[in-house]
C-alpha cells in the first residue's frame, strides 16, 4: 500500500469548505434555460388545419388528432420532445418552448381514466362562408 497518510483529496475538500457551493437550492432557486433548449411542445389551435401529419409522424404516439372532430390532443407525459411534430407542421401551429412543461402528478388522473398531462383542444367549425351563404341567413345572425 502507498503512503497511507498522503491523501490527495484533502486540499480539494478544504478548498471547497471555504468556497461557494456548486449546487443550488432547487427548486427554490432555478437556473435559466439555454435558448433553444427542448422543453415542451406548445400548440396553437387557431392556426391548425388538422392535417394529422404530426400525429402520424410522432415516434412516441403522443399526439392524437382528428380531422372530423377538429380536435387535437397531446399526452405530455408520453411526449419525448424530439421536435418531429414541430418540424413537419405546415401551419406552424406547433412550437418548442425552452421551458420544461408543467410537472404532472398521478393525483391529476380523473376517475374517467384521463391520464395526467393530457392536454386537449377542440376547434369549433368555421362560421359559414358569407359570400356564398344566402343573404337572409346572414341577416338573421
Amino acid at each position: 500500500m502507498a503512503n497511507p497518510f498522503r491523501l490527495p483529496m484533502v486540499p480539494r475538500a478544504l478548498r471547497n469548505l471555504v468556497s461557494r457551493p456548486a449546487t443550488r437550492l432547487y427548486p427554490t432557486e432555478l437556473r435559466p434555460r439555454f435558448a433553444g433548449a427542448r422543453g415542451a411542445i406548445v400548440f396553437d389551435v387557431e392556426s391548425c388545419n388538422f392535417c394529422m401529419l404530426c400525429a402520424r409522424r410522432c415516434p412516441a404516439a403522443a399526439i392524437e388528432c382528428s380531422r372530423e372532430d377538429r380536435s387535437w390532443a397531446i399526452d405530455q407525459l408520453t411526449c419525448i420532445a424530439c421536435g418531429v411534430c414541430v418540424e413537419v407542421c405546415n401551419k406552424k401551429s406547433l412550437s418548442m418552448s425552452a421551458e420544461p412543461g408543467r410537472v404532472h402528478t398521478r393525483a391529476e388522473a380523473t376517475p374517467d381514466g384521463r391520464r395526467p398531462g393530457r392536454e386537449e383542444w377542440l376547434k369549433p367549425a368555421p362560421p359559414p362562408d358569407l359570400t356564398t351563404a344566402p343573404v337572409s341567413a346572414a341577416a338573421t345572425d
Binding site: A13, L14, N16, L17, S19, P21, A22, T23, R24, L25
Partner: peptide, 11 residues
Amino acid sequence: IVSARMQGRVG
C-alpha cells in the same frame, strides 16, 4: 453541513 461543503454542496 460540513461534509456537504467539503463536497461543494449546499447541504
